[in-house]
């Protein structure tokens, strides 16, 4: 397993920090991509941050009221080694399905 750290992104134009309002996930929880992780407040607005990826939450940084600087760690995920950092999703291997049947009279000359 590999750990992937997600730092607090710049949530506006040149914002330098945000304040945690409420964590919507907790360590040990499995989250999906785009699932809301945390509500934070900046000098411009309060926003929910969607998860950049799927994975198990290992650590979260800051409780309600704590300030976090842009670029500092916000959350750490644990993911399988071979999917760490991937863009997109690993295709599922499924049994082949068909609707089309072949029919032919083959002359073997």
């Amino acid at each position: 397993m590999a750990e992937i750290s997600f730092p607090l992104p710049d949530l506006g134009e040149g914002l330098i920090e945000a304040t945690v309002l409420e964590w919507l996930v907790s360590p040990g929880e499995q989250v999906e991509r785009n699932q809301p992780l945390v509500e934070v407040e900046t000098t411009k607005s309060a926003v929910e941050l969607p998860s950049p990826q799927a994975g198990k939450v290992v650590r979260i940084y800051g409780g309600p009221g704590d300030k976090i600087n842009v670029g500092e760690p916000l959350i750490v995920f644990e993911v399988p080694d071979n999917t760490a950092g991937i863009v997109g999703t690993v295709p599922k291997e499924e049994a082949p399905k068909r609707r089309v049947r072949l029919s032919a009279v083959l002359d073997e000359d």
Binding site: V87, G88, T89, P91
Partner: peptide, 8 residues
């Protein structure tokens, strides 16, 4: 084949 965005 991996459900990625444009250019991928």
């Amino acid at each position: 084949g991996i459900r990625a965005p444009e250019h991928h």
